[in-house]
């Protein structure tokens, strides 16, 4: 039996909205330590990794490890029926072919349940090594969203270069060119408004803006985002989801011929 209850149901709604365009389906792997998901987009260019810890839920029980195959478009349809203030409970029997989602309004006067049909999904699991990155940049998630959105209107790819001067995002297209440089800035009093650049060595990599723009759909989940870069490796974009866990995106770089 699997059961996970979260008072702040809007977090689940936001998570699924952040993922559903990148990955159409994937397995929720549940165990006694929490719920994880790893899924690649259909072209194997980017990967989403979600970790929700058992102790981040208001109630969590999982007697048996299970892989629940989810179609995110369908899960999104059901979660749209939940109110933003609702408590959401996920439930499944062992070896179930459905996942039950129960929504309770804040004052308990409306309770609804929906059963989502589960799928059988063969998924490849990629091993992502823990490693030291050449550059790590923490910045307000809204700033990241603005940069990738603005640059997407100019070009298709972005060159991200981290140097001691700061982190520069450059693109070009039919309209012309664009460069946006962010500098280390710890002046704002609120930590979530700061930009912190941790540079071990200069690095420059090119990425498809379409995906970076898509990652920014996770903006409502966290005030800050962390970008990690190393030469010839995928970029790692991470959002901490409060005490519940994190959502991580990896995107393969463009490679010169």
């Amino acid at each position: 039996m699997f059961e996970a209850r979260i008072t702040q149901g809007s977090v689940l709604k936001k998570l699924v909205e952040a993922l559903k365009e990148l990955v159409t389906e994937g397995n929720f792997d549940v165990s006694s330590t929490g719920l994880t998901l790893q899924a690649m987009d259909s072209s194997h260019v980017c990967l989403v990794s979600l970790t929700l810890r058992d102790d981040g839920f208001d109630h969590y029980r999982c007697d048996r490890n299970m892989a629940m195959g989810i179609h995110f478009g369908n899960l999104s349809k059901i979660l749209k029926c939940a109110g933003n203030e609702d408590t959401i409970t996920l439930k499944a029997e062992d070896n179930a072919d459905t996942l039950t989602l129960m929504f309770e309004s804040a004052n308990q006067d409306r309770i609804s349940d929906f059963d989502l049909k589960l799928m059988s999904i063969e998924s490849e699991h990629l091993g992502i090594p823990d490693q030291d990155y050449s550059a790590e940049i923490k910045m307000p998630s809204a700033e990241y969203q603005r940069i990738v959105r603005d640059l997407t209107s100019i070009g298709d790819t972005v060159l991200i270069s981290a140097t001691k001067e700061g982190i520069k995002f450059s693109t070009s297209g039919d309209v012309g060119t664009a460069n946006i440089t962010l500098r280390h800035n710890t002046t704002p009093e609120k930590p979530e408004e700061q930009t912190i650049i941790d540079l071990k060595e200069p690095v420059a990599l090119t990425f498809a803006l379409r995906y970076l723009n898509n990652f920014s759909k996770a903006t409502p989940l966290a005030p800050q985002v962390k970008l990690s870069l190393t030469k010839d490796l995928p970029i790692f974009v991470e959002y901490q989801v409060g005490d519940l866990g994190n959502v991580r995106f990896f995107l393969a770089p463009k490679i010169d011929d």
Binding site: V45, L126, G127, L233, P234, F250, A252, P253, K254, I255
Partner: peptide, 14 residues
């Protein structure tokens, strides 16, 4: 012109 890399070439399947 740069080509789009695939994640499988950077991370191995476990």
């Amino acid at each position: 012109k740069a080509n789009q890399g695939r994640l499988d070439t950077f991370f191995s399947v476990v």
